[in-house]
Write a protein that binds this DNA or RNA. Structure first.
Length: 373
DNA sequence: AATTTGATCAACCGCGTAAGT
DNA sequence: TACTTACGCGGTTGATCAAAT
């Protein structure tokens, strides 16, 4: 049995809103508010619209103090920085830009800013194949929506990362970050690079060596190990490690703070990931088994919460920040995660207040309840 | 001038999840 | 505790307009 529809699809109007509809909706909400029930609202005011449609129209267009178009360079920088860090969490990004909606930013990014920053590069057939291959893997392994067309991952650089290692988002963000870090890049004149998060020497080395390896040998298992070790230099000896038990739950490897782990049973190849299989402690960087684990607040066991596509930068930085060679992923600007009006921020930061022990800024909202306390 | 292609963006869809019962 | 309902989010679609051919 499918999900019940939120409204009578046959009797609701779809498509662009008329000025009369806008006026009705705005007038009502200005006077009475939403009443906390979007579904019931259209009936109250005689609109033949789905409640969700009303909500979207209000949030994205009719709401007061909205800005449309005309993104400033500063806004561009914020969007790009956050995209590199947290990916397509548009609502979170929007929370940092007063007057902007997530939809607006998403459209702006997908249609303009990405091209503005990276330029337009021709996609190679080879890369398309890689990404298409990825697509089937992603769709087979994720409970989340995935793009039907993974070709949207434009290969802006001549380098392409192995499809079996990274999510499309991670590839794109890595490429973007590298692109913006490149002093010789013709587009970098647009950007104030001082605003971009700095790569640590380790990160820089990881990227360089990763790309060198990929360029010379895309299918080399040793290369995969190299990437793994470079991006995830931390193992059970560090306080980020987790020991993964057969049951699928994980606990702290060293009794310290638990951050996350990867479900061993879902890994691509144990031997690729585990340098020492005996204790089943691992850090992984593979398309399958990229589970994030949520921690129960008061015990040391954590359970699989969701199957997210891997986010290379979050994990990378988590390792770097927590590891002995911790290097701050510093964000200039004034992102105050506690002052935002975003529900998403509030929800996630309430548990852990986005603790970054050695850096400030936005990065780990997904793990606010994971034991950073 | 007509047609094609590309860019933009408002709106929709479906899912996860929080809240309510 | 189980189920239902509604919300919020991110991905995607399609209408419209502009530029290119």
């Amino acid at each position: 049995m499918g999900r019940a529809p939120c409204c009578d699809k046959a009797n609701v109007k779809k498509g662009p809103w008329s000025t009369e509809e806008d006026a009705k909706l705005k007038s009502y909400i200005d006077t009475y508010g939403t009443g906390g029930n979007w579904i019931a609202l259209p009936q109250k005011i005689g609109l033949k619209r789905c409640g969700k449609s009303c909500r979207l129209r209000w949030l994205n267009y009719l709401r007061p103090n909205l800005k449309h178009g005309g993104f400033t360079d500063e806004e561009d920088n914020i969007i790009c920085s956050l995209y590199i860090s947290i990916g397509s969490r548009w609502s979170i990004i929007a929370a940092q830009l007063p007057g902007r909606t997530d939809n607006d930013i998403k459209n702006y990014w997908n249609t303009r800013l990405k091209k503005k920053l990276l330029g337009r590069r021709k996609q190679s057939n080879n890369n398309n194949t890689i990404n298409n291959n990825r697509a089937s893997n992603i769709n087979n392994n994720s409970i989340h929506n995935q793009p039907k067309d993974n070709n949207h991952v434009a290969n802006y650089d001549d380098h392409s990362l192995p499809n079996y290692l990274m999510s499309s988002s991670a590839i794109e963000r890595l490429q973007l970050h590298m692109h913006l870090q490149n002093d010789n890049d013709p587009f970098s004149s647009y950007n104030n690079r001082s605003l971009w998060p700095k790569l640590s020497p380790l990160q820089q080395r990881m990227i360089n060596e990763t790309l060198n390896s990929i360029n010379h040998n895309q299918n080399n298992i040793l290369m995969q190990q190299q990437i793994n070790s470079l991006i995830f230099p931390l193992n059970k000896e560090t306080n980020i490690g987790v020991s993964i038990q057969e049951s699928g739950t994980v606990g702290p490897a060293d009794g310290g703070i638990v951050h996350r782990g990867f479900c061993e049973s879902d890994r691509v190849d144990d031997d690729l990931i585990n340098n020492n299989n005996n204790n089943k402690s691992t850090s992984g960087f593979f398309q399958t088994g990229n589970y994030y684990y949520n921690s129960n607040n008061n015990n040391n066991s954590i359970q699989v919460a969701a199957d997210h596509q891997f986010d290379c930068f979050k994990d990378e930085m988590d390792g770097l920040i927590k590891g002995e060679n911790a290097v701050a992923w510093t964000w200039p600007g004034e992102f105050d995660v506690n002052s935002t009006s975003s529900n998403s921020w509030e929800d996630s930061s309430s548990a852990a207040t986005m603790i970054h022990h050695q850096s400030e800024g936005i990065y780990d909202q997904d793990f606010g309840n994971m034991g950073y306390i």
